[in-house]
């Protein structure tokens, strides 16, 4: 193993610098055992969020002392990450925000016509038009997603869509 066992904990907590993250990501892509450990640590991390939320909810109910979310939210922020990583993250989100802004600008007029829809149009997620379409549609609906062209019509096949934000217009 090219890293300390505790590094997986720190990785899922977002507490590792970029270079150590890169080492872990490269390793787990080649090591099934460590990939499984990473998945387990990620599950634990999500569960800990659940534990904290439940504990805070219970504390709020009983009015016991607890860290105030309002105080935390209003506190000044400082970064724990190296400057380069923060810059990269800011750049990534800025790029996504720019895409959002462009989409909003392009679709502004249409958006105005859709203000405050009383019932959302159940069309969003695309499913492949093949043997798996039915299962795809069922799964999407079970997860509260909207499905484009539920059955019997050609659909944009999702797996051909690039994950890049700039391609989403062709995917819908």
């Amino acid at each position: 193993m090219a890293f300390h066992p505790d590094d997986l904990d720190l990785y899922v907590m977002g507490a590792l610098p970029d270079e150590r993250c890169t080492v872990i990501e490269a390793h787990v892509s080649q090591c099934a055992e460590c990939a499984a450990r990473l998945a387990a640590e990620a599950r634990l991390e999500l569960q800990l969020h659940e534990v904290a939320a439940a504990a805070s909810a219970a504390t709020a109910t009983t009015n016991a002392p607890a860290p105030s979310p309002a105080t935390i939210a209003s506190a000044p922020r400082r970064s724990e990450r190296p400057v380069t990583r923060r810059r990269r993250r800011v750049a990534a989100w800025s790029a996504l925000a720019a895409v959002a802004a462009a989409l909003l600008a392009i679709g502004g007029a249409r958006l105005l016509r859709h203000t405050a829809p009383s019932a959302p149009d159940p069309i969003v997620v695309v499913c492949p038009f093949d043997d798996g379409a039915r299962a795809c549609v069922d799964s999407a609906r079970q997860h509260g997603l909207f499905v484009q062209f539920p059955v019997a019509r050609p659909v944009p096949i999702y797996e051909n869509a690039s994950p890049a934000a700039g391609s989403i217009a062709t995917a819908f």
Binding site: A39, L96, R113, P117, P120, F146, A164
Partner: peptide, 30 residues
């Protein structure tokens, strides 16, 4: 947690956000 490789997980998360933004733009998120 669902077994996605780290880099792919980041890409898919980015894609998911972009799709939500697109859905909002199309007025499909109440």
């Amino acid at each position: 947690a669902a077994g996605a490789p780290p880099q792919r997980a980041k890409e898919l998360a980015h894609d998911a956000w972009a799709r939500l933004i697109e859905q909002q733009r199309l007025g499909r998120l109440a």
